[in-house]
């Protein structure tokens, strides 16, 4: 990361919190669970019918490998930082984005965890303002950190709540 003052994705004086590396495992599990059945079905069909159905299995495997690699790169790119008056959420490598959400603008905060997420001990904190454009979700937080963040945001939001 460059420390240039003109770098919009790395404002000065901000220490980024990373998300849990367990998110990588969770996402890879989901990937495997969706792609491997396709591979198995394709191989079985190829054995029973014609050989070229194997190509579908190859494509599915290639997709799996590519996304496997991508998840490994994407998860460390997630970051968030609590500043005095706002929360920063950053994500993406190829298409990067950084969202600044003032605490006073928070309408509500969701904490969500699907079955796979729960198995690996991660949760997603989703922030909502009055704007549908606010795309600020932090996946891959350990449940206790997610709960802490939620309570913290709720407390700060209340203290600074203004009208719309």
């Amino acid at each position: 990361m460059s420390t240039d003052a003109g770098e919009p994705f790395d404002p000065q004086g901000v220490t980024w919190q990373r998300v849990s590396p367990r998110l990588t495992t969770a996402r890879r599990t989901v990937l495997a669970a969706t792609h491997l059945p396709v591979v198995v079905v394709a191989v079985v069909l190829a054995a029973l019918l014609t050989w070229w159905i194997v190509l579908a299995a190859v494509v599915a495997l290639a997709l799996l490998a590519w996304q496997w690699w991508l998840v490994g790169r994407q998860v460390p790119a997630w970051g968030y930082a609590e500043r005095d008056d706002d929360l920063l959420v950053r994500h993406g490598l190829l298409f990067r984005s950084l969202v600044v959400v003032p605490y006073g603008r928070l309408q509500f905060v969701d904490v969500e965890a699907g079955p796979v997420d729960r198995r690996f001990g991660v949760a997603t904190v989703q922030l909502h303002t009055a704007s549908p454009g606010t795309d600020a979700a932090i996946p891959g937080l350990p449940p206790e950190e997610a709960a802490r963040l939620r309570d913290r945001l709720a407390a700060r939001g209340e203290a600074r709540l203004a009208g719309l």
Binding site: P8, F9, L94, F95, R96, S97, L98, V99, V100, V101, P102, R105, T129, A130, S131, P132, G133, T134, D135, A136, A162, L164
Partner: peptide, 29 residues
């Protein structure tokens, strides 16, 4: 100014190569 909900800065791969970035102000629907 007082009606800004949140802010975002975004950058795609081409923008990155050219040293550009886009800024969005989020408003109500």
């Amino acid at each position: 100014h007082e009606r800004t909900q949140s802010l975002a800065v975004e950058q795609g791969p081409l923008q990155r190569r050219l040293g550009l970035a886009s800024v969005a102000l989020h408003s109500t629907p």
